[in-house]
Write a protein that binds this DNA or RNA. Structure first.
Lengths: 100, 100
DNA sequence: CTTTCGTGATACCTTTTGGTATTATTTTAA
DNA sequence: TTAAAATAATACCAAAAGGTATCACGAAAG
């Protein structure tokens, strides 16, 4: 799953940046103090986690957000939907009890 | 953020288990082959990430899911809502272009 | 009170992670 | 065709992660 890729704040920032616009490695690296090699590693992990796509354009590589991969991560949380509903209805019952 | 806590599959499994019912450390550990000490470490990380709550009951410690912490993680993804919408509407435009 | 059961806390080990530095490789521009 | 720019690849290092083993502690059952 892509959760491992999301564990690092640098990678989460990269995703937020790519949500604005796709970027080359150099462009991403300009926004951080670390070396390009380090940024490239982060991008590789994001790619492994299927959270970004990479396409070659001449001598540059353009990184873009992969909505499908992100959606898969978000979907993992749907398991808790019932849990939230339960707790919400429990809260609702408490409130209704208070009112009466 | 709780993302670091979600990076490990064992911890994600624990959360799924706690969604069914709250459990003591021993009960959680019974579902894994690792030692209780290892499970306790995972629970500590989940607690640090604010994804579970822990309450003492006699000589046992009961771990329960923390919906607020989970919700905070899910909310992180709302940043991409516009992104998804954009791509969906782009797709919609493509389809409409095809139809006409 | 003593024993026992569930945890807490350390110490330690191995693997992974996040980073740098350095050296190719490849594409474009002069 | 040579030089420069963007990236790839590799080796290396320190710190963190994930695990075990061990011992200490507190509640509860006899």
């Amino acid at each position: 799953m892509g959760f491992r890729a999301l564990a690092d704040p640098t990678r989460r920032n990269i995703l937020y940046m790519l949500a604005k616009d796709e970027m080359t490695i150099a462009e991403v690296a300009d926004n951080f103090q670390m070396t390009r090699a380090a940024v490239k590693k982060h991008l590789a992990i994001l790619h492994d986690g299927d959270l970004i796509t990479v396409r070659t354009s001449g001598r540059t590589r353009v990184n873009a957000l992969n909505p499908d991969g992100l959606r898969r991560v978000v979907d993992w949380f749907s398991y808790f939907d019932a849990f939230w509903d339960d707790h919400l209805s429990a809260l609702k019952s408490e409130i209704e009890k208070d009112i009466q």
